[in-house]
Nucleic acid binder design. Sequence first.
DNA 1: TTAATGTATGAGCATATACTCAGACAACAA
DNA 2: TTGTTGTCTGAGTATATGCTCATACATTAA
Lengths: 119, 119
Amino acid sequence: MHKTNEDACLCRVIHTGRIEKARQTSLQPDEHEKLANLFKAMGDTTRLKILLALSHEEMCVCDLAAFLGITESAVSHQLRMLRQLYLVANRREGPVLYYRLNDEHISRLIEIGLEHIRE
Amino acid sequence: MHKTNEDACLCRVIHTGRIEKARQTSLQPDEHEKLANLFKAMGDTTRLKILLALSHEEMCVCDLAAFLGITESAVSHQLRMLRQLYLVANRREGPVLYYRLNDEHISRLIEIGLEHIRE
DNA sequence: TTAATGTATGAGCATATACTCAGACAACAA
DNA sequence: TTGTTGTCTGAGTATATGCTCATACATTAA
């Protein structure tokens, strides 16, 4: 018989020591969410392709839309999310916005991720 | 007026050279999806907390459920995903399954991710 | 001012996903 | 065998999310 409420669950724990240890080395309150949002932003093929493209050269919304074969609206929506999480930054040149990766962390994450999937 | 089909979109492109360049340095056909799945797996607070806990010490399903305050069923579902993507591995000791991180890539990704959100 | 171009945004919709619930499976003891 | 414990799994459901569409904003030129 398996209880599903939390109290009962705690009674079945085998290694309370490990749990205590894990609890002590935990992150700051909101860091879990921030970190998850970072990886979530990279966890979509469209956004990932955008990041990969920008890792070589800055590009505008038009370029990205043509490169990905999707509408500029869709690109713009995704760029907003990437902007808000500081994955990309932009600069304006007249009416055109050129997007680039915000810092080196992003390309390093992609590098290590590629190593992993190529095992 | 903004056309939404791809042909029209290509006509408005500003930098065809950049698109060509981005196209040449693209990944293998299925690598985009594999890489996105890796980051997507890390892009959820529950799974991220599991990975963080396992980065210190191997733990069983019971431990993780108590640590996270969720049901063992929910933990098991997430562990299956993490297993299938080679983020975690396990070993059996009698009826108990001990889970651990599959390789060093995962903790490195977390490290760099933390650097990023802490700017 | 008006018009054109590049980009951003909100609403709506279809799909994806994280959890719960119920039950099944696996290993071991009696 | 039966019972217990630890874990796994399929179905259902509520929420999240990625795109389209229509529209609005921003910059520049006429």
